[in-house]
């Protein structure tokens, strides 16, 4: 009985670590990080080998990947998309501008960072981030899952 109790959560964590599905949302970034994120799907990087899928609907996703400093218009949308993702969920901020505002800090229309709005679990700095860094970020985030 004791053993069973320990095994079940272990299996759950294992499954969660092995199949993180991401939802990509551009929260006002410049595109640079988005295309690098997309190129993760392609043969040179292929994140499917880690079990990562790029999902289309927020309801299917586990990790919300945001790129961009959160503009005023995008802000309510971002919140809503975050709410639509079923628990357990994580947020990954990709790019300097989604970590802190980056080059855009000081602009009148931006919030300056995802963490002003949502709890961020992992930051991936870089402007633009290299695909390897993004993979590294996702893997580190996944490894931190308890």
């Amino acid at each position: 009985m004791e053993k069973n109790k320990a095994i079940l959560p272990n299996i759950l964590t294992w499954a969660r670590k092995k199949s993180p599905w991401i939802l990509h949302f551009n929260s006002g970034g410049c595109n640079g990080c988005d295309i690098e994120l997309l190129s993760l799907l392609t043969p040179s990087y292929d994140i499917e080998r880690f079990g990562i899928l790029n999902e289309a609907s927020p309801r299917h996703a586990d990790i919300l990947v945001c790129t961009g400093p959160v503009t005023e218009q995008v802000r309510p949308r971002l919140k809503r998309i975050y709410d639509q993702i079923p628990e357990p969920k994580w947020v990954l901020a990709v790019g300097s501008c989604s970590c802190s505002g980056g080059v855009f800090s000081g602009a009148y229309n931006i919030l300056g960072g995802i963490d002003k709005l949502l709890p961020v679990d992992m930051y991936v700095p870089g402007c633009p981030c290299r695909p390897e860094t993004i993979i590294d970020g996702i893997i580190k985030l996944v490894e931190s899952i308890q």
């Binding site: 551009n26 006002g28 970034g29 410049c30 640079g32 961009g68 400093p69 503009t71 218009q73 995008v74 949308r77 501008c97 980056g102 080059v103 855009f104 000081g106 602009a107 009148y108 229309n109 931006i110 402007c127």
Partner: peptide, 25 residues
Amino acid sequence: GYVHRGIEKLAQQRTYVQNVYLIER
């Protein structure tokens, strides 16, 4: 307008040299 960050305005607050990096983004 979802991605409007206000770069044109921001460019007025920075110097010509700094702007090269902003414009790139």
